[in-house]
Design a protein around this nucleic acid. Sequence first.
DNA 1: GTAATAAGTTAGTGAACGCTAACTGAGGGG
DNA 2: CCCCTCAGTTAGCGTTCACTAACTTATTAC
Lengths: 230, 230
Amino acid sequence: MPAAARKRQIVETVLELVAEHGADAVSAQLIADAIGLSQPGVFRHFPTKEAIWMAVIGWLQDRLADVWSEARGDQEHPPPIWVLKRMFLGHVELIIRYPGLAKVVFSDHIRHQYPALHEQFHALHRWYDREVTTLLEESIRTSDLPSTTDVPAAATLFFCTIQGLAFQSAIARYRRSRVWDCATRVLVLYVNAIGMRQPALEGSMDRRPPSARAVFGTSATHRGNRRDQR
Amino acid sequence: MPAAARKRQIVETVLELVAEHGADAVSAQLIADAIGLSQPGVFRHFPTKEAIWMAVIGWLQDRLADVWSEARGDQEHPPPIWVLKRMFLGHVELIIRYPGLAKVVFSDHIRHQYPALHEQFHALHRWYDREVTTLLEESIRTSDLPSTTDVPAAATLFFCTIQGLAFQSAIARYRRSRVWDCATRVLVLYVNAIGMRQPALEGSMDRRPPSARAVFGTSATHRGNRRDQR
DNA sequence: GTAATAAGTTAGTGAACGCTAACTGAGGGG
DNA sequence: CCCCTCAGTTAGCGTTCACTAACTTATTAC
């Protein structure tokens, strides 16, 4: 198999294995067994284990960028508050669909073992914060938010809420459908929190109905994938 | 040394070691070295490693119960919204003061390795949710909150926000002072979110000024403990 | 005074970890 | 036809893990 395809296969396999066994239980041997390879075969494509995790972060970064650009949609200047809400739901959808992502992000062990990884996560976090802050400031400029809004706190609350939902989904292992329900209702409260006038936000959800197919996607529609509990 | 004292010493030492090295790096050998004991000496007081983690959860449970009872204060029927805010800040203070706690709670590896631990965490979470829900419902009864408040979502947002702050403090390793500042400002937004009238909440903070001494406590007043960064 | 108990020791178990060394077989170009 | 590169193998390195067996020492009870 060509090296590029193997690399992709390894990253995707790692994400699945993390979702199933936890980030710290994913050894080179486990990866090798999952894709039908010998253990040193894995190290032919990645020099160290750290490099594998780096590739996984890269994947996360790409998906997050997808969510953001998708949240902006096709319009030239979409209402910033509308974009913010779509970013929120898009991020939650990503987290629910790939439980391995949150497990890697939450793994203190990995961060501690590979400082470069921690640095990468930190950069991603700053990027995220800047993105949200910009949208909030734009909202103030367009008078969707009062000028008294505490923007840094609002950005923090945005991120904290998503982190909390990610925790419930990945680590506390709550049902995906429950987490999604929580997310949509909590988003309403968040909009309250930052002082947005309620009427302005109706209709913004039109392009993202909480379709079960979209959230619990792929093969699992309704009957399948009942192994996630609580 | 008597067994009871040793047990306490081991639990406290584990929390410190977790804060420093991460939950998954705390081996029996590391504990033994830290308290000046041989490695099998640790297993004389706890039959398995799982038992050690169980004891740590017990410690967390006790501290959380302290925070709650302290939040209620001395009054017979304190205003529920006032209690809620003190619970929030008390919990954040606990998390900031003992970074090891959050690392244990966030460790997917430990939860995966010891299902009984996961069960215990789950019970604690339910307990927490019930506590917050009760306070929110009481607030509606006392007309501090509108009857239209989405109580389950408000309880989830409460917990998610704290989890998010815990993540930033323990895993993302933000400065304690920064996290505390975020917490106080985010709390204002939370109060907005659940629709409470602003005037009613002034004065509720009087008993908990954001005193640096209380939060960053013990030996580290201002100059010390600068090792936490970012 | 002696026997029992509690606390801790040294030595060692098998398993798993990340990673390396050295070799093998297939495909393609000069 | 030969040789080289690429993808993969087997075997093994040293280390750490949780945990056990068997022995020692100090305190306490009778």
